[in-house]
Simulated scan of single mutants.
Amino acid sequence: MKVRNHRLMRDDGQAAPYLASPHAGGTIAPRFMIIHYTGGSSAAGTISWFRDPKSKVSAHLVIARDGRVTQMVPFNHEAWHAGQSRWGHLSGLNHHSIGIELDNAGILIRSGGKWVSKLTRKSYPDRDVTVAPHKNEPPGAAPSGWHAYTPEQILATLECGMALVEHYGLTDVLGHDDIAPGRKVDPGPDFPMESVRARLMGRSDDHPERYRTSARLFVRSGAGPDFAALPGTPLPLGTEVEVLLKQGLWWQVDVVGEVNGVMDIVGWCHSKYLVPVGT
């Protein structure tokens, strides 16, 4: 992807879908990319709400669960996504950032044997939920359920982020929970913030983490057991992999060398069966 005239462009030169929100401010020189979850039940519902004159909220981009991206505010204009916020000596991050909303129900509660959104009352299967404490909670806090992001959303976030970092020289990628701690918890522990930040901003050592398998391990086409196993898997015990992204307990890996006659295996596996090389 590329940015042209403050609009997102696809590799084929066509503009990404654009549905203007009326909730936009003056011109800005963005320095940060802020990640949010919508907390709703669909990308279409979020887009409709951001276009509603009553909502008084907006974001520059909305990323659906299938990875489709809709732009709603030009990148050089303020969108109303951050609210009361602070980072370092800066306050009011709407004036300094590009806001990206990912279609995700966010924090979930256990009710009637199901994971349920407190906002929409929609339920989600266990395979779509990560159970983990939030990073801003005190040590020992009970874990909560969080709606899992899809691999397509993470890939789209990276593709958009690469274009934005290159065009605007952004200096960091932050969560809403970084700039408004105590008030906001999005994007939550399932979003692989450290991996996304490392890919967009550059690793400090430029060396991906390397692990080896502690058991025979299937590498799948997506982050979950329901996705198809890739050719060449299961990986034998002791196979080395490089970790590309961490999405909860499911990690995207690049298998080192040829395995079972197959080269260039890149996919998702459960991190339970990976241990750091050298241990």
Rank of each mutant, 00 (worst) to 15 (best):
Val62Ala: 03
Leu237Lys: 01
Gly113Ile: 09
Val219Asn: 00
Asp177Gly: 00
Ala215Asp: 10
Glu258His: 05
Val256Phe: 01
Arg86Pro: 02
Gly175Ala: 14
Arg7Gln: 06
Asp12Thr: 11
Ile265Ser: 13
Pro181Phe: 02
Gly248Thr: 12
Leu90Met: 12
Gly112His: 12
Lys122His: 08
Ala44Trp: 04
Arg121Met: 02
Val253Gly: 02
Met9Arg: 13
Asp66Leu: 05
Pro133Asp: 00
Val219Met: 14
Lys56Gly: 00
Phe218Trp: 09
Ala229Cys: 11
Thr38Gly: 12
Asp52Phe: 14
Lys135Cys: 05
Pro225His: 05
Ser48Gln: 11
Leu245Val: 07
Arg183Cys: 01
Pro74Ala: 13
His270Leu: 13
Ala223Gly: 13
His167Val: 06
Leu217Ala: 10
Lys246Phe: 09
His81Pro: 04
Ala148Glu: 14
Lys184Glu: 07
Pro74Cys: 13
Gly267Ala: 12
Val131Gly: 07
Asp66Met: 09
Glu194Asp: 14
Val73Ile: 15
Gly39Ala: 06
Thr46Arg: 02
Ile34Gly: 01
Met263Gln: 07
Lys56Gln: 15
Gly261Thr: 11
Val255Ser: 06
Leu90Thr: 00
His6Ile: 00
Ala43Asn: 15
Leu19Asn: 13
Ser271Val: 10
Tyr168Gly: 01
Leu19Pro: 02
Tyr211Leu: 14
Arg220Glu: 14
Trp49Pro: 03
Val256Ile: 15
Val73Lys: 02
Val116Leu: 04
Asn76Ser: 04
Ala148Ile: 01
Pro143Ile: 15
Val262Met: 02
Ala228Leu: 13
Glu101Cys: 10
Val173Ser: 08
Cys160Ala: 15
Asp128Leu: 08
Ser195Glu: 07
Ser48Leu: 07
Asn5Met: 03
Ala15His: 00
Arg212Asn: 06
Ser204Gly: 14
Gly25His: 08
Phe75Glu: 00
Gly88Leu: 15
Leu249Phe: 05
Ala180Phe: 07
Glu242Asn: 15
Ser195Thr: 15
Pro208Ile: 07
